[in-house]
Write a protein that binds this DNA or RNA. Structure first.
Lengths: 152, 152
DNA sequence: ACGTTATAGTTACATATGAAACCAGTTGCA
DNA sequence: TGCAACTGGTTTCATATGTAACTATAACGT
């Protein structure tokens, strides 16, 4: 695996260094999408992610949202504060456990979702269109493999 | 390209949404490396990136560092302030242009580099080892393709 | 030469983020 | 019961980051 032409102590060539390349690509992609819905709805990426999971699963608690978005609970708490304030998410208290909140998209929240989800999908499609079918298949497979391990 | 089972307005499944997956993976990878050198040298990711390019190219100006790291000039300015303060980078003024700085790793800076570069490479190797040869080839090819477009 | 415009870099300000402390409310168990 | 340990969620504080304003120098056009 080591390459004699690139001894361990040699200067890194960032442009060929995988973690760096992933980071640049990922930021470019996510930022392009976020810019889009930020302009239209003043919605941050973390807020949008919260809305996206609430669109799929209703009645989640904040902790469950955190698990599903892989965000930490502080970030979720803040996102929720803004979303509830904006009237896009409703927050009730769990029946049997007064600590828990029960979260749902409001009508207005669904309306936002109806606009943003297609925007996000369009960006993804746009990205995937740069690849041919074979490359897309490999990409998914590679991500699956890397993520099977990496999450700790 | 559209998939009838996943209409545009349907809730996003984050775990299958490419930009999200890239973001999670990229953060996990970069953070794992950064944690490592952060603990040992109190060096942030941006600072390390600056050191990495100065290890390859000496006498760069701050603007050139910014170009090569794809960081903005404010971030570079701050990173340099810390690196110069820490004694890992030397800053002189360009002969013919008093606005420009001329940046180089110091002896101490090289010593840090000698430790961190192998650490970073080890992490990358560790990641690539999850893939077989064919997958690695495709990954590079896919990244090349996506990045050829995405940067703007 | 001289004012306008551009460039290198820093500073200030406003916002975002993460870690730890904190406040309920709940559970476990003597 | 009652109290220790735990959990859901928010607040606080310290740090990071991005944008715009600013300073100093250089380049350009007349």
């Amino acid at each position: 695996m080591s390459d004699d032409r690139h001894p361990d102590h040699a200067p890194l060539e960032l442009e060929h260094f995988l973690p760096y390349r992933l980071s640049i690509l990922s930021n470019a992609v996510s930022q392009a999408i976020a810019d889009d819905y930020q302009r239209r709805f003043d919605l941050s990426m973390t807020e949008w992610r919260v809305m996206a999971v609430l669109a799929r699963f209703d009645g989640l608690s904040a902790r469950e949202v955190a698990e599903r978005t892989l965000m930490d609970k502080v970030a979720v708490s803040r996102a929720l504060a803004k979303l509830v304030e904006a009237g896009w998410v409703t927050r009730a208290t769990h029946d049997g456990d007064k600590r828990r909140s029960v979260l749902d998209l409001s009508e207005a929240g669904w309306a936002v979702h109806e606009v943003v989800a297609p925007m996000a999908r369009a960006h993804e499609r746009n990205l995937l269109e740069k690849l041919d079918e074979e490359e897309r298949t490999w990409l998914v497979r590679i991500l699956d493999k890397l993520q099977a391990i990496e999450p700790k």
